[in-house]
């Protein structure tokens, strides 16, 4: 009989003790909390180092340009398609709802405000998390397990400057650009449905689109996008950089990067929305 089985039998013989159970519960909660705080601390330290190396030389413009193209240009089709169909569905759904209150005229306004303030930044963030976050984690994770990151160090190249900083900068800069394009495409999707399916008059739809739209609506979405771009690239870099040995470790890093970036985007979206629009 193993030691654990003997202990279990001894505990069974002594009977259930609520004090022991409570102590065990507290121990588990404490261990989980400490683990969580440790993870937050490690991530914060990693983010701090990443930001520091974004602003200190040497800089790698060729690598930055490559990341700008990869994150921005190559994400355009997936973000554009997402925005187009989101705008179209939004027009259809809001028309269905508003027609019950004879408020169909508000469709264009709802589409443009929803797209610029919420849907374009959040959906673009989530799509880029899937495309770019996973790719960054897999690439850096593979470099970690094949000792390429150690090789960088031996070749007098700081891994944070060479690998992390260009990706953080590119993510933070390019997501707002993608979201600006997604804003236009999403609103145009709503326009297509509004004019060609719901029989709105084109001039009226466009007028309603502009009527209540303010610069703040668009700019707040771009700030959110910038934060989401940072989150996506940070999580990709963090999980890739700390990838464990082997293919399984790289796979886990990739999954963790996408899941954690997606959750953080949704949480950050709430707090940013409250920050921008609280009391308005």
């Amino acid at each position: 009989m193993s030691m654990t089985e003997q202990q279990d039998d001894a505990e069974t013989a002594r009977g259930f003790s609520p004090v022991v159970w409570l102590l065990d519960l507290c121990t588990r909660i404490g261990a989980t909390l400490l683990g969580f705080l440790g993870a937050v601390g490690r991530l914060s330290a990693f983010a701090g180092r990443g930001i520091y190396h974004c602003f200190t030389p040497p800089f790698y413009p060729r690598l930055l340009w490559r990341q700008l193209v990869d994150i921005g240009y190559y994400s355009l089709p997936v973000v554009g398609m997402t925005a187009l169909f989101t705008g179209m569905v939004l027009a259809l759904q809001s028309y269905t709802g508003f027609s019950r209150f004879s408020a169909e005229g508000a469709v264009a306004t709802v589409v443009v405000l929803s797209v610029t303030r919420e849907l374009a930044p959040v959906l673009a963030g989530l799509m880029v998390a899937g495309r770019i976050g996973a790719s960054i984690a897999a690439e850096i994770g593979t470099m970690r397990v094949t000792e390429q990151i150690d090789a960088l160090t031996t070749l007098s190249t700081h891994p944070f400057k060479y690998l992390i900083a260009p990706r953080l900068i590119a993510g933070t800069l390019m997501l707002p650009v993608l979201v600006l394009i997604a804003d236009v495409i999403g609103v145009y999707g709503g326009y297509i449905v509004g004019v060609y399916k719901l029989d709105f008059i084109s001039e009226n739809y466009i007028h309603r689109t502009w009527e209540y739209l303010t610069a703040e609506d668009v700019i707040s979405g771009l700030w959110k996008a910038s934060a989401f771009g940072f989150i996506v690239t940070l999580m990709g870099c963090y999980h890739g950089f700390n990838s464990q040995r082997g293919a399984q470790g790289v796979g886990a890093a990739t999954t963790n990067a996408v899941v954690s970036a997606s959750i953080l985007i949704l949480i950050a979206n709430y707090f940013l929305t409250q920050l921008f629009f609280a009391g308005k």
């Binding site: 593979t142 470099m143 094949t146 000792e147 390429q148 150690d150 090789a151 031996t154």
Partner: peptide
């Protein structure tokens, strides 16, 4: 200078 076990070439 360092020669790594697996080469560690930048792929």
């Amino acid at each position: 200078g360092m020669l790594f076990q697996g080469g560690a070439l930048f792929d």
